[in-house]
Amino acid sequence: MADITAAMVKELRERSGAGMMDCKKALAETGGDIEAAIDWLRAKGLASAGKKAGRTAAEGLVGVAVNGKKGVVVEVNSETDFVAKNDQFQNFVRDVTALALTTGEDDVEALKNAAMPSGKTVGEALTENIATIGENQNLRRMKSLEVANGAVVSYVHNAAAPGMGKIGVLVALEGDAPADKLETLGKQLAMHIAAANPLALTGDDIDPAVIEREAAIAREKNADKIAGKPADIAEKILKGPVDKFRKESALLSQAVVFDGKTPVQDWVASEAKAAGGSVAVKDFVRFQLGEGIEKQQSDFAAEVAAVSGVKQG
Score class of each variant (00 low, 15 high):
residue 131 A to M: 10
residue 132 T to Y: 00
residue 132 T to I: 13
residue 132 T to H: 00
residue 133 I to S: 07
residue 134 G to I: 13
residue 135 E to I: 09
residue 135 E to L: 10
residue 136 N to A: 14
residue 137 Q to P: 04
residue 137 Q to T: 13
residue 138 N to M: 14
residue 138 N to G: 05
residue 139 L to M: 09
residue 139 L to E: 12
residue 140 R to W: 10
residue 140 R to G: 10
residue 141 R to K: 13
residue 141 R to H: 08
residue 141 R to W: 09
residue 141 R to E: 11
residue 142 M to L: 15
residue 142 M to F: 10
residue 143 K to L: 15
residue 144 S to K: 07
residue 144 S to I: 12
residue 145 L to E: 06
residue 146 E to G: 09
residue 146 E to T: 15
residue 146 E to P: 11
residue 146 E to Y: 02
residue 146 E to M: 07
residue 146 E to F: 08
residue 147 V to E: 02
residue 148 A to E: 15
residue 148 A to W: 03
residue 148 A to L: 13
residue 150 G to L: 07
residue 150 G to C: 04
residue 150 G to M: 03
residue 151 A to Q: 08
residue 152 V to D: 01
residue 154 S to F: 03
residue 154 S to C: 04
residue 154 S to T: 10
residue 154 S to E: 14
residue 155 Y to D: 08
residue 155 Y to N: 05
residue 155 Y to E: 08
residue 155 Y to V: 10
residue 156 V to P: 04
residue 157 H to N: 04
residue 158 N to R: 13
residue 159 A to V: 14
residue 159 A to T: 13
residue 159 A to D: 10
residue 159 A to N: 11
residue 160 A to Q: 13
residue 160 A to D: 11
residue 161 A to V: 02
residue 162 P to M: 10
residue 162 P to D: 12
residue 164 M to C: 09
residue 164 M to S: 06
residue 164 M to Q: 15
residue 165 G to Q: 06
residue 165 G to F: 10
residue 166 K to T: 14
residue 166 K to F: 03
residue 166 K to Q: 13
residue 167 I to A: 02
residue 167 I to N: 02
residue 167 I to W: 07
residue 167 I to V: 15
residue 168 G to I: 14
residue 168 G to Q: 07
residue 168 G to N: 11
residue 168 G to E: 04
residue 169 V to Y: 01
residue 169 V to K: 00
residue 170 L to F: 01
residue 170 L to G: 02
residue 171 V to Y: 02
residue 172 A to F: 03
residue 172 A to G: 06
residue 173 L to F: 03
residue 173 L to H: 01
residue 174 E to Q: 08
residue 175 G to E: 07
residue 175 G to K: 07
residue 175 G to D: 09
residue 175 G to M: 05
residue 176 D to E: 11
residue 176 D to P: 15
residue 176 D to M: 12
residue 176 D to H: 11
residue 176 D to I: 14
residue 177 A to Y: 02
residue 178 P to K: 06
residue 178 P to A: 12
residue 178 P to M: 09
residue 182 L to C: 07
residue 182 L to I: 05
residue 183 E to G: 02
residue 184 T to Q: 12
residue 184 T to I: 06
residue 185 L to N: 03
residue 185 L to V: 14
residue 185 L to C: 07
residue 186 G to P: 05
residue 186 G to D: 03
residue 186 G to N: 04
residue 188 Q to F: 06
residue 188 Q to Y: 10
residue 188 Q to T: 14
residue 188 Q to P: 00
residue 188 Q to R: 12
residue 188 Q to C: 04
residue 189 L to K: 08
residue 189 L to N: 05
residue 189 L to G: 02
residue 190 A to S: 13
residue 190 A to K: 05
residue 191 M to K: 01
residue 192 H to N: 12
residue 192 H to Y: 04
residue 193 I to D: 05
residue 194 A to Y: 05
residue 194 A to T: 10
residue 194 A to I: 13
residue 194 A to E: 07
residue 195 A to F: 02
residue 195 A to H: 01
residue 195 A to D: 08
residue 196 A to S: 14
residue 196 A to V: 04
residue 196 A to M: 11
residue 197 N to E: 12
residue 197 N to Q: 12
residue 198 P to I: 06
residue 198 P to Y: 00
residue 199 L to R: 07
residue 199 L to P: 09
residue 200 A to L: 06
residue 200 A to S: 10
residue 201 L to N: 04
residue 201 L to I: 12
residue 202 T to A: 08
residue 202 T to R: 08
